[in-house]
Amino acid sequence: MFEATFNQASILKQVLEATKDLVNDANWDCSAEGIALQAMDSSHVSLVSLSLRGDELASYRCENQISLGINMNTMTKILKCAENNDRTIIRADDDADVMVFVFESEGRDKTSKYEMKLMDIDSEHLGIPEQEYSATVQMSSKEFSRIVRDLSTIGENVEITVDKEGITFGAKGESGSGTVSLKSNPSVDEGSSNITIDLTDSVKLNFALRYLTFFTKAAPLSDNVSLSLSADVPLMVEYAIGDVGFIRYYLAPKIDD
């Protein structure tokens, strides 16, 4: 039996918003440690990896490992039936073909119960190696969303350059070009861009903005985002989910042959 209780529905709602545009169906792999999900987009260019630790949830139990095949759009719709502050329980029996959702209102005077059919999903699982990155940039998640949105109006791709001066995002299109530079600023002043850069080697890589736009849907989960880059390897974009876990995205770079 698997059962996880979230003090508020909002975390699950935000996790679904952060994944549903990238992935239609995904296996939620539940174990004694917690909930994990790994899924690629249909073109296999990007990957989302979600981890929620059971011991950081309001309550959690999972005796036997279980893989729950979930249609992300259906789950999004069911979660819309919950208020943000509703205590939310998700539950599935071993060998169950449904997941049960229970939403309890703040005053405990209203309880809603929904059942969602589970699916058999045959998904390809990738082994993601532990990677030392040449550059890791921590910045405001809102700022990152803004830059991705702004440069998407110019072109389809973004060139990300990280060096000791800071990070620069650049896009070129048929009608023009744009760049946004953020200086690394160790003195934390009010109103500064407030980014930190951990750099061993300068890097310059190209990525499709279309996927970065999907990743920025995770911004409500965290005030900060971290971008990890090395030459010729996938970008990792990570949003922490409080103390509960993280959502990480990987995106294959565009490389000149």
Partner: peptide, 14 residues
């Protein structure tokens, strides 16, 4: 600019 590779070009099957 550049060719879009799939992730499997970088990560192996688990």
């Amino acid at each position: 600019s550049g060719k879009q590779h799939q992730l499997s070009a970088f990560f192996g099957a688990a």
